[in-house]
Write a protein that binds this DNA or RNA. Sequence first.
DNA 1: TGTCCACAGGAAATACGGGGGT
DNA 2: ACCCCCGTATTTCCTGTGGACA
Length: 414
Amino acid sequence: MQIENRIERQIESLLEHNIIRDRSYLDDEQLFRNEQFKVLKAIFYVNVRQKEIDGLSAHFAPIFRDDHPIHLSILGKTGTGKTVTILYFLNLIRNLCTKKNIPIRYIYLDLTTPKPCFRALNDLACFLDASKRYKKGISLDELMCRIESKIQTLQGYFILLIDEIDHVRRDMDSFLKFLVKRLPQRVNVRLVLIFTSNKLNWMEAIDPRVKSFLKINEMVFNPYNALDLKKILSLRIEKALHPGGIAEGVVEKIAAISSRTHGDARKAVELLSKSAQLAEKEGKVITVEIVDKALEEIEQDKYVAMIRASPKQLQAALFAIITGSKHSTKVLHTGDAYGRYRSFCDRIALRALTQRAFSDLVSELDMCGFVQARLRSHGRYGRTKEIAVHLSKELIKKLKQVVLMEFDLNPRWP
DNA sequence: TGTCCACAGGAAATACGGGGGT
DNA sequence: ACCCCCGTATTTCCTGTGGACA
């Protein structure tokens, strides 16, 4: 009875302090492309990315003069809106062309997750309706021929947007060779390739013979500044939150933090989202203090996510180190750490690696920022790494739980 | 000054596993 | 179905090293 009352009251208070109106506007993944375009339109309307849009217009203007634009390479860090801007723009162009009766078709080839040449071409073929999805059994050449003959049936302009081109593993050269050299020679459509990458120098790695063939225009998307981010965030807030759910100066703060550290719009929205969640849980409006807390929590989540995604061995190594350095409050030497690691491995029936391999694990943990390992000599008493953990108490606790869960253990171990 | 500790970390060998070719 | 090849993970082997101590 009491419990029921309490739950009821809690739900009421949550509803009363409801801050989020539509969560999907805080999470890009959940937004339909149509909605995304609407949001974007609003963003471009307030002159964010104006320069880039102008650049794109200039690049594609030849289409309307019955001319052939050269290829385009778009560079810029993650979260600078490369993909979304260009997609929006292509959509516009297509509508415009339809109005003017210019045949045009564009395809978005998403390589966000790395794949080999075969997969990438297979994806392309699928979009073109030229072939089924194969895992193997069909030669690259066959695949290329099918794509060619399909494209052969098209008229006018064919725009191929390849997102994150540098994610083509292994045989990027044959992939590019096909697109840049072979394809244009064998089809009638005017092919325009658009590459996206966050590596400024991705072109340096490609075969010079292909490269010399590749007439390309480069375009750089710079990270957003605080002003742009503020505009972007304001639009999201308008859609996603109830009015009055956010305190004075919070938008400015999020924009300032984000522009200073990365200029990534996605991360800025993420910070906003986390703040809103926290505020709702505490039944308050979003304040600058809550933003700070959200920032910290996002930071912690990164560590947790990273260790979750890591191999078991690394998890075990981390566990051995964080439990080891805790009660002695001091640094841990490699030998001791390795001993702890071994006994932990025994306990969880994991095959323990050699000390040599363990040492590499420690280096990896160091690089990821879980621990600090510095080489120190104790003279006669040997040379060893001193491993220290500089993570907050809560985070250590969280990480321990995560690792133990990964190993299916109950959270009790000395 | 030489010794020697307790490892670091490079190189090569080996094990493993999956995908492609036939 | 089978084999081969290649990339990656791990082991084995090895040489190198800063400085306290005698």
